[in-house]
Nucleic acid binder design. Structure first.
Lengths: 195, 195
DNA sequence: AACACTCTTGACCGAGCGGTCGGATATGTA
DNA sequence: TACATATCCGACCGCTCGGTCAAGAGTGTT
């Protein structure tokens, strides 16, 4: 029998995934080269292709791992009063990214670089996140028409996702404080929107 | 004396700018090629370089014209009661893009592709937009610390800018309705956020 | 008419890209 | 030990990209 995978195979694969994610996020996926990613990871370009079939496949691995983690974190938020649950969801999403800004930026930047079926797999995860938040908003502000509920939900994701594009770590408001600000804004504002 | 520029020089230059903006936005600036942009505009690639010095310069022209128009629209919103003014600002921004989604998407996608000094010129316009909105929010919810005021302002831009990434024309909520929803959410929620 | 310059094009170029390959070396299995 | 395969690399390949160029045709100026 031939030898199997090395014991640290998954570790090395994950290390490349994370190193490449940071490099891709810093330079933009399209502008970033596989040669540059290899140098950033401290390995040869050929080794990247030993662990990942292509540049697109590497991107998919990065985004899939990222979104899976996010879904898991959101699923772990306890049930409870709608206000507390919304606050928990918003906090969970923002906190999850404390050490994953690179992956998050990539998601905004590079999703369209993937093949349609790969996009579909990731959008499934995204839809699940949206659905979870929409359920809670529906409890907080019952009676919204479906398109209004969708719009209100997406406006929350807009606030959260936009955060990473203007916030500079160590400057301005912190993550926890911003999470509370968004939660306060939504909880206070939802009752006032039209059906 | 030699002949000067053709009478329709500026028209043709603008036509290329708008055609290229749509093409760039549809494909992503980095993935879009100048050859493709030329074909989309119905001219030769060399002609693009007759009217614009480089791919980056063309992008800068697109974004500068776009942001200038946005600043003009926002400056034209009348003074008045803070609530009405905020509503007017939000409407103005969303409505301005009814026929400029391409340019708006480009702004999110490709700003980092520009040289730092070009980015600075555009960020000056962006700062002016942010400042105008922040002034009105400061009137609606006096006493916010500076970093809270910035965060609240950026959360509004988050809702507005995110709109173009999930909204599909003809499906779901309309632009006017979404503008009102955001204004209601902000006006209702601002009093409830902490100092 | 003569000129200078704009307008427009297809052909072309060097650079950098994603991806491949042959081989060197390490390591688990039999 | 002998073998098969994983692991790793430098060198290489074909292609597309941004950008250039030489030249033809049109046009305002003198």
């Amino acid at each position: 029998m031939p030898r199997g995978l090395a014991r640290d195979h998954d570790d090395k694969r994950a290390a490349i995934r994370e190193g490449a994610a940071a490099y891709f996020a810093a330079h933009g996926f399209d502008r970033a080269s596989m040669a540059g990613a290899a140098k950033a990871c401290g390995v040869s370009k050929a080794l990247l292709y030993h662990y990942h079939a292509s540049k697109e496949a590497l991107l998919f691995d990065i985004l899939y791992a990222h979104l899976s983690g996010l879904v898991a974190v959101v699923d772990a938020v306890p049930e409870g009063q709608p206000e507390a649950r919304l606050r928990g969801l918003i906090r969970a999403i923002l906190m999850k990214y404390r050490y994953a800004d690179a992956e998050h930026r990539l998601q905004l930047d590079a999703l369209k670089a993937l093949a349609p079926d790969q996009q579909a797999a990731l959008r499934g995860h995204q839809r699940r996140l949206v659905g979870t938040l929409a359920e809670t908003i529906d409890l907080l502000r019952p009676g919204l028409a479906e398109d209004r509920l969708q719009a209100a939900t997406m406006s929350v994701f807009g606030m959260l996702n936009w955060f990473f594009l203007w916030h500079r770590p160590g400057k301005g408001i912190g993550r926890e404080a911003y999470a509370d600000l968004v939660a306060d804004l939504v909880i206070g504002g939802l009752p006032g929107i039209a059906d």
